[in-house]
């Protein structure tokens, strides 16, 4: 393989070099031997436990999953067997058959379990990462967004029913993605979406409380207000305050979990 050849060549050259830079040594760190089926299993399991694919929803067919994940169908099949063994999905045969997320898969419970097992250090670090990327997005968006684009996000958010927990969570995630995209940066938007997928289940957990949902709504509106004024600092502070409040609520929630 060409890639291996290139790596061996670099490694040999490094033998004679004084000290490889830290970035360079990172290239040769072990990549782990986790199999592809395990990677597929983990990806789908995270989506189910995070509530991105709700209970009862049908998964794409084996062949569709294999095509889009660019793995062999047998790899997908292996992953689905593992997910079935964990009770996350059920498989039905027949005309309307396929793999479905188990009705018992309750993302709130999964997320509570994850929160309970997470250290405060890790939780705060997730908040710091989420906040940093989101602030970078809104900073660029404040300089680049057109008022009409901000107004449309505001309109869609106003149409979302905050009384419905799931509908609100979805609308809030969408608004956040749209705000990130206003940065006109593909890299930052991709990174923000990845972090949103990770952080959103936690926001959903504290959003079980209606007043917390109202707080979340006001936070997004504060960001939109700042974007409309082209005020990058105010947009970044609004994000920062929101993440700090959310992490504090999550730590409270975690303490209640530990006491229970």
């Amino acid at each position: 393989m060409r890639d291996n050849g290139a790596m061996q060549h670099s490694a040999r050259r490094d033998d004679t070099a004084a000290q490889p830079s830290r970035m360079q040594s990172a290239v040769f760190l072990p990549i782990g031997d986790e199999g592809r089926a395990e990677l597929v299993e983990r990806r789908i399991a995270e989506a189910i436990t995070g509530g991105l694919i709700p209970a009862g929803e049908r998964l794409p067919s084996e062949s569709a999953l294999a095509r889009s994940l660019r793995v062999a169908p047998v790899t997908v099949r292996e992953a689905l067997v593992a997910l079935r063994d964990r009770g996350l999905i059920v498989t039905r045969r027949g005309r309307n058959g396929g793999s479905f997320v188990a009705d018992s898969a309750d993302p709130a419970q999964f997320t509570a379990k994850r929160l309970g097992a997470m250290s405060r250090v890790a939780l705060r670090d997730l908040g710091a990462h989420y906040s940093a990327i989101t602030r970078a997005c809104v900073g660029l968006a404040a300089a680049r967004a057109d008022a009409s684009e901000v107004a449309r996000i505001r309109q869609r958010l106003a149409n979302a029913d905050a009384a419905d927990e799931k509908a609100w969570r979805r609308a809030a995630d969408e608004a956040q993605t749209e705000i990130a995209a206003l940065s006109q940066s593909a890299r930052l938007t991709r990174e923000q979406m990845r972090l949103q997928a990770e952080f959103s289940p936690f926001l959903g957990l504290i959003g079980q409380d209606a007043s917390a949902r109202e707080q979340q709504r006001r936070a997004v509106l504060a960001v939109l207000d700042a974007l409309e004024r082209g005020d990058a600092d105010a947009a970044a502070s609004a994000v920062d305050a929101f993440v700090r409040d959310s992490v504090a609520l999550l730590i409270d929630h975690q303490m209640r979990l530990h006491r229970a």
């Binding site: 794409p60 889009s68 449309r152 979805r170 995630d173």
Partner: peptide, 20 residues
């Protein structure tokens, strides 16, 4: 030129309402 598989590519995206 891969076929776009929304649901499989990034779960959650299929809920985005493209009419807007």
């Amino acid at each position: 030129h891969s076929k776009l598989e929304l649901a499989a590519q990034n779960i959650g995206k299929e809920h985005i309402d493209y009419s807007e």
